[in-house]
Design a binder for these strands. Structure first.
Lengths: 141, 141
DNA sequence: TTGCTAATGCTAATCATTCTCATTTGCAAT
DNA sequence: ATTGCAAATGAGAATGATTAGCATTAGCAA
């Protein structure tokens, strides 16, 4: 029911593909999904949604503020549910695991860096590429 | 002569296309160039270098540590001369002007953020997207 | 000067993403 | 419930950046 409200308020019709995609993210085990990921997952669960539609819906959701889009290293972009909390990302170069973090000091200094140089910060993207040192990383031990 | 040394030490033959590309960056008015940019500039100066070669050379130079590659918002990537000093970027959303900056505190906190979560920082990319408030911005006044 | 390997320059191929357009579907007004 | 129509979908073609394949050319060491 919540989804419906979201879609409505975004001026989007409540259609099958859109509901499927949205619930994928809301039920999500993986928070960060590419268009291809979404497409595969839907196919796997027997829901036939065209790839073009997935791309369209994802972008509409981003516009509507339901999702946030990220460009990690490499070509394809990934989306995650927008839960209001801004955060940055650490991506493991080995296993691809993504961890989120927020550092008020970094945010602060960014704003200052921009202001000092005569810019008005609009947005930023910070990705840290690293290696897990935890045993969690599937490519270690 | 300096270029020659660079190429040699990178195990790259000193060829015309490579010298052309390298001097483009070293003489550079624009520090940040895409493959397409390089291609156009070379054509403009009467030097005929194939686009594929430009891409190849750019990547080889990156591997060799002569250039650094960046992915600003959007699709195409840009290269800049590697002068040893790491820095991040502020990109004007209006005019595309790129300003470089370095903030020791931000660097520090990033390392800490990674370490705190069991990662060993390998690399990071930080891009600030902003609007010039200086009259410099060609899309203002 | 010769010879061989690496480099170049085309063009065709890839990959992610977007566009086109004919067909279908949500939904508001009968 | 039924109808009508704009909005949404699906399939495949088109795009744009980047890379691969291969025949030709050019550094450079002997």
């Amino acid at each position: 029911m919540n989804e419906l409200l979201h879609l409505k308020s975004a001026g989007l019709k409540s259609t099958l593909p859109r509901l499927k995609v949205l619930s994928l993210f809301e039920s999500g085990s993986d928070r960060h999904l590419s268009a291809e990921d979404v497409y595969r997952k839907l196919l796997a669960s027997g829901d036939d949604v065209g790839l073009a539609t997935v791309y369209r819906v994802l972008n509409q959701f981003e516009q509507a503020g339901l999702l946030v889009k990220h460009h990690f290293e490499g070509d394809k972009s990934v989306f995650e549910l927008n839960q209001g909390d801004h955060h940055d990302h650490i991506v493991c170069l080995q296993c691809g695991r993504v961890e989120e973090f927020f550092d008020a000091t970094i945010e602060q200094r960014q704003k200052k860096a921009a202001a000092d140089r005569g810019f008005e910060l609009h947005d930023h993207s910070l990705y840290i590429y690293a290696n897990c040192i935890k045993p969690k990383c599937k490519y270690r031990n």
